[in-house]
Design a protein around this nucleic acid. Structure first.
Length: 287
DNA sequence: GCCCAGGCGTCCC
DNA sequence: GGGACGCATGGG
């Protein structure tokens, strides 16, 4: 057990439920189980106290980075709040959201799966891939009652997966996309070891060489798996809220929206996107 | 049965 | 570059 103090820029429920993470389970009010980095974590927040069921060393090695603890979200929010009343209201409700630093390969496959799926359905598919290709996680936790948990597979663990196998897991038309992604990652033409150090534009171009990876999926991978804060994934929800706010009086294309976002949000468009996304979903904007 | 879901590839202009 | 359409599958 390890406990730290957090400010009001950290709300575990908002962080996990804002649509970036697909491998958590709510156990109780502000209490969750998360599977990430080949580990199971139980985390609970009680006001300013954040409790991890691990020791300090594991926190320092794994979870500090995962929860993006070194980034100053207070400053980011201060900058964004000043810009307009939409951001001000979004941040008032979503001030506890942070961008998780998740595994790149997991994000790649997860967001390939995400197309034309609802968020709960994506979780089902991700779990199914983990159960079939990942490793059973050994835990010494009490109260799991025989529950088996599986880590998300590495590219190596998936490299012999076949299209028929994947279709049997009900990934549908995304099966060949996953095959192509695994192949390119394994053979190195998409180098995920180097991607963190690459320029956003180059990294995006590399990801988009994979069949089934377009601008939106690539930008989600860059944001949630590579720490690139200067991207702006546009999905149906972001499109709705952007039309309802910054582009009230005219229909705009995605590229117009992107041009606007990348200059207006000044290098933290990805974080702004996440506030707007969570805000749009919780407030049901455009629905 | 119909529509929609964190889109994308293909075809066509 | 941009619009129309098909794509597997499941839920409402």
């Amino acid at each position: 057990m390890f406990t730290i103090k957090v400010g009001d820029d950290f709300l575990i429920n908002q962080i996990l439920e804002c649509g970036q993470c697909f491998r958590y389970k709510k156990l109780d009010e502000m209490s969750y189980r998360v599977i990430a980095k080949g580990l199971v974590l139980h985390v609970k927040q009680d006001g300013q106290e954040l409790q991890f069921d691990c020791d300090e060393e594991v926190y320092d090695d794994v979870w500090r980075d995962y929860f993006d603890m070194e980034r100053d979200y207070v400053s980011v929010m201060d900058g964004l709040r000043k810009k307009d009343h939409y951001l001000k209201e979004a941040i008032m409700l979503c001030h506890g959201v942070r961008i998780l630093q998740q595994d790149v390969f997991e994000m790649l496959i997860t967001f390939i799966l995400s197309q034309n799926k609802s968020i709960p359905q994506i979780s089902v598919l991700v779990d199914r891939l983990a159960e079939n290709y990942g490793e059973k996680i050994e835990t010494d936790l009490n109260g799991l009652g025989g529950l088996e948990l599986y880590s998300f597979p590495s590219s190596e663990q998936m490299q012999h997966a076949t299209e028929e196998e994947l279709r049997a897991l009900k990934v549908g038309f995304r099966a060949p996309y996953i095959i192509d992604a695994v192949e390119k990652v394994v053979n190195g033409s998409v180098n995920l070891k180097r991607i963190h150090h690459m320029d956003t534009v180059d990294a995006r171009e590399m990801l988009m060489s994979i069949k089934g990876v377009g601008r939106k999926v690539a930008d989600c991978v860059l944001l949630f798996g590579c720490g690139k804060m200067d991207v702006f994934p546009i999905d149906v929800w972001v499109r709705r809220i952007m039309q309802a706010t910054y582009f009230k009086d005219k229909q705009v294309s995605n590229s117009e929206m992107l041009d606007f976002a990348e200059s207006y949000f000044e290098g933290v468009s990805g974080i702004a996107q996440q506030y707007l996304f969570y805000y749009a979903r919780t407030e049901g904007i455009g629905k």
